[in-house]
Amino acid sequence: MGRTNQKLSRSAYVLSARIRESGTDAPREKKMTADELVYAVISALPSQKVDGKKRLQKMCFFAALRSGEANKLFRIHNFGPYSVRVDQASEVLSIFGVLKAKDIAVGASQTYVRSYSLGEAESNLSKFSAADAKLIAELDKYSTIELEVASTVAFYKSIEGYEFAQALDATKRLKPTKVNPSTTKKSQAILDFIGA
């Protein structure tokens, strides 16, 4: 939907992130737009590149979950947590040259995945603190399907208030072929790591 003037309803979403200053317990409030969230996630990845729109969505979900704002940005759509603003942001930042988007063919089927990396256009968008960047780097070790299952479980648990087993059941109904003992174990590990 994009932006409108302040005097009328704003359609740009403002995300608040609370970041702890090292050495203190006083939280520092940091507001991030969806554009900044996407940019911060990609900047925090060790390769500064993410292969896949789905992967980017799930990374952004966990980042937003940690800041306590995922319920405002994300909802279940097409069977997993999805943010239309994150989707828009990744494409718009590519239009602006802040991100570089390229379709790359992978595997024997040569099917395509959209890869986003940092672009050449100057950006004044915020980045994560060291702690949050470390979180994203850690998540990068998991496969996309593992992130997909874990994020859906996390959505049901943290946003809908389900217990883990109930959240897992709900996820299995949405993704019957992806929930298995291995992805279940990884989901638990991710949720423990995130603190969800």
Partner: peptide
Amino acid sequence: ENIWYKEDRISEKK
């Protein structure tokens, strides 16, 4: 200049 506008960034992807 108090000119009203609305950005239509990208189509509704859903």
